[in-house]
Amino acid sequence: MNIKTTLIRFQSIIALLVLCIVLSFMSDKFLTPENGWNIMRQISVNVCISIGMTLVILTRGIDLSVGSILALSGAVAAGLLKYGIDVPSLNLFIGFTVFGAILGGLFVGGGLGVFNGWMITKFKVPPFVATLAMLTIARGATMLWTGGFPITGLGAHFAFIGTGWFLGIPMPVWITAILVVIAVIVTNKTKFGRYIYAIGGNESAARLSGLPINKIKIWVYTIAGILAAVGGIILTSRLDSAQPNAGFSYELDSIAAVVIGGTSLSGGRGSILGTVQGALIIGVLNSGLVLLNVSPFWQQIIKGFVILLAVILDRINHPNEE
């Protein structure tokens, strides 16, 4: 392998390293353990969502609803934990443990994902439209569930998920790392993973090979929903509060991570590890810009150009694809 192809191959890691080195010279607060964990904790939610987003995009789909699903799942978990289910007319009250509340949140996320997948496969609604509708629906449902007010005061046990440490590593980082490892194995080493790539690469050939296209797609959107819920629970726990407008525009950050990580929006090409690198680049950049006191307005502009740069580099690597 010559130098040029090596450089191209590891472009995101190199970009990340360069970014870190530059930032550590510009701010002495950057290269500290606290800041490191801080960045990792902050990107963990994005990484969770982006794993699901990567799978969806690999099948040549898109999921715009993850931010709203995140909000609703977090709010449901928080609501169940704090208030339980109370139906006075039936004289019914069900209380929830932390574990039960979390399951409830995951269930909501998965359920909405199933619904997305069902619309897309059964009724042939384009993914963009189906998940755009879900973006609105789930956000509305969050407002209904919370009445428009945050649900706070969720207790120490629940807070452990987002703020606790285990063996010297923050809990959110544990959770995300485990999910990343599972996702890497699933995409590279299992039938399910292979089928995802095949469907995104050429759906018609995949269908004629007898692959269960609809089943795989429904699963992919379901997983995206569940992972958004995981993100929602981590976020709610970290803030000790379920905000009705939580996760606003998170789908865009997630798509950015996926794209910066080299996954093609036309499906069939990309990887989980690429997405993790993408999320890291965004996270490091965010943190660095804050430490350098760059105004938030400029931060957004810079982030936009980073996305463009990443895609241009990707185009140079893969000149012959649409």
């Binding site: 039938k191 292979r194 095949a198 050429n202 018609s204 090979s209 090409r269």
Partner: peptide
């Protein structure tokens, strides 16, 4: 091209596609 192969995949992945088991 349209119905037989996933062109972006290497040969071996296309060969095993219908019989991964």
């Amino acid at each position: 091209k349209k119905d037989g192969l996933v062109l972006s995949m290497p040969i071996y992945k296309n060969v095993s596609m219908a019989s991964l088991d």
